[in-house]
Write a protein that binds this DNA or RNA. Structure first.
Length: 722
DNA sequence: TGATGTCGGGCGACCG
């Protein structure tokens, strides 16, 4: 059998030799065999910097060189969710493609129009594009798609794991399905991904019609040794001497991370600001050069570029205190250690974060997990007593060590994104019949969960005279309505996700970043932002601008954010941890003490064979043993029955009122499958960009499909009753 | 209500 290297085209072999590689990496060799010997779709899963890009491109480019199509159009299409990733990859591919004399065209909002015009005139080579820019191509050049993509051999989807479950993932899949339909043929799909929670689901996402035929190349696991510590801290110790929990963590970070490159994930932007401020102050006090910098999405591009460059250069030691901004595949080089403050929200993201460290041979990956718990008082809530943050951190670490991570959820209707794609198709083609549209998006596209009836309901909602997004001509053709035209015309249409309104923060003519408008800001106020302290000078509401100047003190602003979902498996593990007696060796003394406290309080609750515990006179605790979706569903059902309910990780705290039935009776009714209206208290159902155009009934269906699980309600109630 | 975050963009007018 010939080796993978032998299979590559001459110019590509030449490039490989020029790299001085002794041999191709295992995943590259395996991907080469699959891609050169078959026309199967493929998923390549490996950690960041695992050589995935080359694994896909070396063989795909070889095929193009060995067998030029002679047809017009881009030879390869690469779709990535970040502009920075496209810029990075364009640079790497440029090098390979120079040898092959194929153009590489990065295409996103910051790419000059001249580059785009040239590429459109004579489309060939590799097109690297964001989903939004691809959407714009469909809308603005819908009729030219065959000319632009007639020659396209394959589409490479980078960071597949990050879009599997999301609005943007559905958008990408819809665009690809539409492209294939307009070309009247399939285009091979190659997904590049970090470790996946469920390969079979990922295959179904990549190629819904034949997931069984999608091949996979997965990097051998293991690799770096993992060094792990979980440190516990108690806050609210005002009477005691010594630093607060925040200061203590900042001190520990300062002492252990100084002098090397590190990432510290603080969970929320406000926390990033607080820790950056503390660490900056520590550097100043010790008269040491600054090496701790904040990094999150509200900070200016300039500042973020500066931090990323410092990390990548490796010249001066740099620690970024960050949110998930530094989680995805932008290349920032290897870091010594990854810090995580507070329990993460998913094992998948914890794994992705950890993958940033220990990439050099012989170097361990280091995770420093910090958890802050409240100081207990006689009136402390049971959730504080159960130390749910700490227990969640332990559960996540154990699941990480076992190699598990969350699979994507399936079955969501994605009605907001459906609205977007309906408008996009109509704009692309000028008009379309309802039946054809349904076939395109729901039968052949990604909206397969949407039946004819809800689809017609969506069309009706969009065609309602007050909405006027679409209208129907006499011959039945669907056209854009007045509002629809306006919406699609503006560049804000291309993204499928919602963006909040923000102020721009300016100091001395330089933009520091943005603040959500729901912060109440007035002149004279003090702010912490970008890790520094500011005095608010002027607020211009109309232009959404805040002018500031440096100050000596400040408070961190509020940033928004929607809570995400914790997976069932994580909650199950949390309960197991509360019920067993293991003392993980990676926990420090305080963390172990907190864990013992949690266990003894859990034992005191005396859950019986069922999972009900009485707390005081009228509060009842239910252990749901399920994640956010099912726990929230049960909470809504009990609220509908008149109870006051607070939700926690895997627990509900239920209070009866005059006139409410016995909780046991209410649970028994649910267990018997009795119907319940979860929306009696009309909770907010508008979460996504195009939700405001839908009816209440459609919004409820969308919520049922993605955020709630009514089917599990009866079984969950039964198991709680025991 | 107990709680995060991230991501994207076309065109034409104007100026040198």
């Amino acid at each position: 059998m010939s080796t993978a290297f032998d299979k590559l085209a001459r110019p590509i072999q030449k490039w490989v030799r020029a790299q001085g590689w002794r041999e191709m990496r295992d995943i590259q060799a395996r991907a080469t065999h699959v891609l050169m010997d078959s026309d199967a779709d493929l998923i390549v899963a490996a950690s960041t910097a695992g050589g995935k890009t080359e694994a896909a491109f070396l063989p795909l480019l070889s095929q193009i060189l060995d067998d030029p199509s002679g047809i017009s159009g881009f030879d390869l299409l690469y779709v990535a969710p970040l502009k920075a990733l496209i810029t990075d990859q364009a640079r790497r591919l440029d090098d390979i493609c120079r040898e092959a004399e194929l153009p590489v065209i990065p295409w996103h909002g910051d790419v000059p129009a001249s580059v785009k015009t040239r590429a459109i005139k004579r489309p060939r080579g590799v097109l690297l594009i964001t989903p939004e820019s691809l959407e714009a191509l469909f809308i603005r050049r819908g009729l030219e798609l065959p000319r632009l993509f007639g020659a396209t051999r394959a589409v490479i989807l980078d960071e597949l794991h990050s879009v599997l479950d999301s609005e943007r993932g559905i958008q990408i899949r819809s665009l690809l399905a539409r492209l294939e339909q307009s070309l009247n043929r399939l285009i091979r799909r190659v997904g590049l991904s970090a470790t996946l929670g469920d390969m079979e689901l990922a295959k179904a996402y990549l190629r819904p019609d034949s997931p069984g035929e999608v091949r996979e190349v997965v990097a051998a696991g293991g690799g770096a040794e993992l060094q792990l510590q979980l440190r516990g801290y108690v806050t609210g110790d005002n009477d005691d001497e010594g630093p607060s929990a925040t200061d203590a963590i900042a001190l520990h970070l300062f002492g252990h991370l100084r002098g090397s490159d590190n990432l510290v994930f603080a969970g929320a932007r406000q926390a990033v600001e607080i820790y950056s401020d503390r660490l900056r102050t520590l550097c100043e006090k010790e008269r040491l050069p600054q090496e701790f910098y904040p990094h999150h999405a509200s900070l200016s591009r300039d500042h973020r570029d500066f931090v990323e460059r410092r990390l990548k250069d490796g010249n001066a030691p740099t620690t970024a205190i960050c949110t998930s901004t530094l989680e995805l595949g932008i290349d920032i080089g290897d870091v010594t250690c990854v810090g995580q403050i507070g329990a993460p929200f998913s094992v998948a993201s914890l794994r992705q974060r950890l993958g940033r460290s220990g990439r050099r041979p012989g170097k361990p990956a280091i995770l420093r997990q910090y958890v802050v718990e409240a100081k207990l008082t006689p009136t402390s809530n049971f959730s504080d007593r159960l130390r749910l943050g700490l227990v969640r951190a332990v559960a996540m670490i154990e699941l990480l060590l076992e190699g598990w991570c969350e699979p994507p959820k399936r079955g969501a209707l994605h009605l907001s994104t459906l609205v977007h794609q309906i408008l996009s198709v109509i704009a692309q083609r000028g008009g379309i019949h309802a039946q054809q549209l349904y076939g395109m998006l729901c039968q052949k596209g990604p909206f397969r969960q949407v039946d004819t009836q809800p689809f017609l309901d969506v069309l009706r909602a969009l065609g309602h005279p007050e909405t006027a997004l679409i209208e129907q001509a006499d011959d039945g053709l669907l056209l854009l309505g007045a509002m629809g035209e306006k919406l699609v015309e503006h560049y804000s249409f291309y993204a499928v996700f919602q963006t909040p309104e923000e102020y721009r923060l300016i100091s001395g003519g330089k933009e520091l970043g943005t603040l959500p408008i729901d912060n109440l800001i007035a002149p004279g106020m003090l702010l912490i932002f970008s890790g520094r302290r500011w005095l608010v000078l002027e607020v211009h509401d109309r232009d959404r601008v805040i002018m500031v100047s440096p100050a000596k003190a400040g408070v961190p602003p509020l940033f928004g954010g929607d809570p995400g979902n914790i997976h069932d498996r994580v909650i199950e593990r949390m309960l197991d941890i509360l019920e067993d007696q293991n003392r993980p060796i990676y926990m420090d003394a305080t963390a172990l003490e907190l864990l013992e406290e949690a266990r003894s309080h859990y034992a005191q609750l005396q859950f019986g064979p069922g999972r009900i515990a009485q707390l005081g006179e009228n509060a009842t605790i239910l252990a749901t043993r399920t994640g956010s979706i099912r726990t929230t569903t049960l909470a809504l059902a009990l609220r509908a029955a008149g109870f006051t309910v607070q939700t926690h990780d895997g627990f509900l705290e239920v209070f009866g009122k005059d006139g409410t039935p016995l909780l046991i009776d209410a649970l028994a009714a649910l267990a018997s499958g009795e119907a319940v209206n979860l929306f009696t208290h009309s909770p907010n159902l508008v979460f996504e960009k195009f939700h405001p155009y839908l009816t209440e009934a459609l919004l409820q269906q969308d919520a049922f499909s993605a955020r709630l699980d009514t089917a599990a309600l009866a079984e969950l109630s039964r198991s709680i009753l025991g």
